[in-house]
Design a protein around this nucleic acid. Structure first.
Lengths: 162, 162
DNA sequence: CGGTTTGTTGCAAGCCAATTGCACTTAAGG
DNA sequence: CCTTAAGTGCAATTGGCTTGCAACAAACCG
């Protein structure tokens, strides 16, 4: 009952960074992490390399499939992701049902998503997001602090719509 | 590692329907469900009574605690919810991490939510939502069909913000 | 450069919401 | 009533996380 979505989701290509530029960003990122008690380990570097080079949401399972992380324990990746999240450097997105997606927090790289409820495809919304103003209004009128948001449009992708 | 949020979340009161009016809406809802092969069972009526009278997102666990559903098997509730979802009458919201929330689809009763990342409190956004136009634009320019959306603002509620 | 401290990792076990198989019950429609 | 297909309870399984523990290895110190 209820459809499955258990295949590999294709993400929109979005935000790909060149090889050399990635290394510099990774170094910078790791350096900033030192303050949070992180050490420069192979696993951390490999994880950041992937998530910086291709800035998009990944499931833990997807990360475990990636080059240089493939042969690592999933618990290791899990703990890295969680620690990054605790440090405020990682965001947990609840795009689909029971699996969580994770995406690095890179200031100025916010995105909303479209998800196909038939095939599970996820793609970025190619329009600027105008919710920052709503956030400001909510913080002002309701007293909430530090708001960000998660917006997902759900429907049928062109391929599944027939 | 990573905070827990495992307590009972308080939902904003929102959309409460009077006792008598609820019964009428339940009857109407059940009637429309006949077309999808549903039968009028006690469990279905009890479920709809709750979810129509107080139109808000519920977890399966919360539903299982409710009057008239308390002594029922959780698998029964689960299957009702899934079948309603398959019939397009129920929406699965991914508000928090591990657990899913479900909310009946009642045309014209759309809401966005605010969630506190410290205490887990969820409340409705008390502002009109202006994304219908974005949906139209996306369907037109990208060829997606039947779009709806899920929008959640995340931050610290007034109580947790100090 | 060794030695110490403390974060990191692998492995395996555990957790828990969700999911399913099966046999029994019951609503709906003759 | 009687038949049929949907609904239900119970128990068992799945699967994505989550954790305890002992072995490792960065980072730091003298």
């Amino acid at each position: 009952m209820s459809d499955a979505h258990s295949h590999t989701h294709s993400h929109g290509q979005s935000c790909v960074v060149s090889r050399g530029e990635t290394e510099a960003l990774v170094d910078e990122f790791v350096a900033s992490l030192r303050a949070d008690g992180f050490r420069r380990t192979d696993a951390l570097v490999a994880l950041l390399r992937v998530m910086i080079r291709n800035h998009q949401p990944y499931t833990l399972a997807e990360l475990a499939e990636v080059e240089d992380l493939r042969e690592r324990d999933q618990a290791t990746i899990y703990r890295l992701v969680m620690k990054l999240k605790d440090a405020g450097k990682m965001r947990q997105l609840n795009l689909a049902g029971r699996v969580s997606y994770f995406q690095l927090v890179l200031p100025g790289h916010h995105h909303d998503y479209l998800r196909c409820e038939s095939c599970g495809e996820v793609q970025e919304v190619p329009l600027p997001c105008a919710l920052a103003e709503v956030e400001r209004e909510l913080m002002h009128s309701l007293g909430w602090k530090g708001l960000h948001h998660e917006l997902e449009f759900i429907g049928l992708c062109p391929a599944c719509a027939d």
